[in-house]
Amino acid sequence: MIIMLVLLAAILLVGGWFFTTYNSLVSLKVRVENAWSQIDVQLKRRHDLIPNLVEAVKGYMNYEKDTLERVIKARNQAIDASSIKDKAQAENFLSSTLKSLFAVVERYPDLKANQNVLKLQEELTSTENKISFARQYYNDEAGRFNTQILIVPGNIVAGAVGFTQRDFFQIEDKTEKEVPQVKF
């Protein structure tokens, strides 16, 4: 009788522990997914802004057609990318082409004097910042989730229900905090 009771208590205890751990892991997972959708929103915003910028500067830049074409190409690639790793790579490429576009803009005084171009540039800078903040938030959350499913109580539960580690959204640049800074 006593053994039965002890066994029952043990089962209840283990079950309770299992479910609380599982629940906390799930809530972490939801936060990671939420963070990922944030990045997506910002990436889409950037993809929408780029054609406007290209349109605005096109008239001024007769000799820089290939820079513009590269930006457009990078943008289309970024839209097509699907997995996290592909996306990260495509967005990195897009960022670097944008950087060179902004460098070109610097050389055209007419462009710098155009409030419309300046506005678009500010919007893009802001979006770049938002992307990097969203990425930072996503990486923080993903890191927390990954730690939880690796350390001892979590890894048992994660193994049982099949939670896997999330990829980080990384950029190749060593200077993590450096966003392409636009000088007006």
């Binding site: 500010e122 802001s126 969203a134």
Partner: peptide
């Protein structure tokens, strides 16, 4: 207002940084 738009962008960026 250009300056105010600029502030709005910055505040939105920070809003993204704290998780939306």
């Amino acid at each position: 207002d250009t300056y105010h738009q600029y502030l709005k962008n910055i505040v939105e960026e920070v809003s993204v940084a704290i998780g939306g």
